[in-house]
Design a protein around this nucleic acid. Structure first.
Lengths: 153, 153
DNA sequence: TTCAAATAGTTGACTTTTTCAATGAAATGA
DNA sequence: TCATTTCATTGAAAAAGTCAACTATTTGAA
């Protein structure tokens, strides 16, 4: 039978299957489910992990900065931090240099969870990305890095 | 002032900013909004365009095949096709070889709209992707193609 | 042949994500 | 001083994703 599932050669040759945007979307969907699966045991998601990770990098990010960097609506950042803070992984601190904004700092527990999450994510990237060898993966990372952050040459 | 918006060098060097999964997500978000903006005048979205395009490639896809290929729940495919069919761009036809399934066929109007959409998408890929030159873009497309379709060596 | 099991499309409920408008507190600049 | 802007927050609404159930049809084994 031809009509099994993931489509045959004709599909791969189709117009959309060579659109960068389509490939990006599909690759992202793959990586998304793999990432969520790995983070679930830690109570994190692909959505919340970067928030915790950036806090743990001691960047003291404001919520506005997080929203910009993660391309999320500020209101979503509120919800994500509410969750992390409720679980005792991060704290909001009023920025004394601009009392309108709040910076995110990790708790000790937050650091521990983050370290494990980092490792989990690293491992998760192995699974869907093993079709590429190390050099190819680095090439892909470099190209996507320029795509994702066009501002800086 | 430092706290402008899209983050500085420290952020780019952060742990997450070098995760393939994060870069994929962010690049996808960028390409998504660019794509939707371009397709809106045609009454299409990044979600519905591939459905129309695959129909117009004369692949006579069944809804199940579309769901697998586009990584959508079958029920979402129903909604997308309902919309396209309601606008007279495609038709459902019962597959005579398996009367459970229905294949998607484009109308003449569907083909016209699709041709314009194809061009719009091609043009849209210029905008966010101009940071990469042609060779880099082809490299990226090739790598993502292998990521998105791991099954076939 | 007959009948149980599997599959395609559809519907509906439900959750999560996304998007947007409005608000109060604080900062900025004329 | 005061209008304007920015930040975090709330709440509503639209869009997207997930899941279980149902009908019609096919398949395969008894």
């Amino acid at each position: 039978m031809t009509g099994n599932g993931d489509a045959g050669a004709a599909w791969r040759a189709s117009s959309v299957a060579n659109d960068l945007s389509f490939l990006l979307a599909r690759s992202n969907a793959l990586s998304l489910s793999a990432g969520n699966a790995v983070l679930r045991p830690l109570g994190l998601k692909v959505r919340s992990y970067p928030v915790l990770a950036l806090a743990c990098d001691d960047l003291r990010p404001t919520q506005r900065e997080l929203a910009d960097f993660l391309r999320l609506d500020p209101s979503q950042v509120v919800a994500l931090i509410d969750d992390l803070e409720g679980r005792g992984l991060v704290e909001r601190r009023t920025d004394e240099r601009d009392r309108r904004s709040k910076v995110l700092v990790p708790t000790e527990e937050g650091r521990r969870v983050c370290a494990r999450a980092r490792e989990a994510v690293r491992a998760a990237e192995e699974a869907p990305f093993t079709v590429l060898d190390r050099a190819e993966r680095e090439m892909l990372t470099a190209l996507l890095g320029r795509l994702a952050f066009p501002s800086e040459g």
